[in-house]
Amino acid sequence: MNTAPRRWRTSTVLLIECPWCGPRAETEFSYGGEAGIERPADPYALSDAEWADYLFFRRNPRGAHRELWNHAQGCRRWFGVERDTVSYRIEKSYRLSGAGSARPAAAHIEASEEKRR
């Protein structure tokens, strides 16, 4: 009857910087997959293969990875994180400008975040 997948909380290992709330334990966040996947302006112009590429295929790189996180237990904002998939180091986190989940927000916002770190 339960319709939602059970979300097991991992140990609070990573410290993730919410661009609004500051550094918080990993357990406050939910993961949203690779960032920078822009929704095609006209999905119907795409072939089935191109559409499948947008839908299902992700880079899964070794090293720097830009990804979406949601501060689910906090301010409910989605934001971007650049994380190294080998060392798990988080190089930066950034607000999204919106259109296109990839694009970081305007420079002045980023600068203030840099200062925080």
Binding site: G32, W78, L96, G98, A99, G100, S101
Partner: peptide, 11 residues
Amino acid sequence: MEKWLQTEWPE
């Protein structure tokens, strides 16, 4: 819903 509003359609 928030994901679409915040990341794709902030307008």
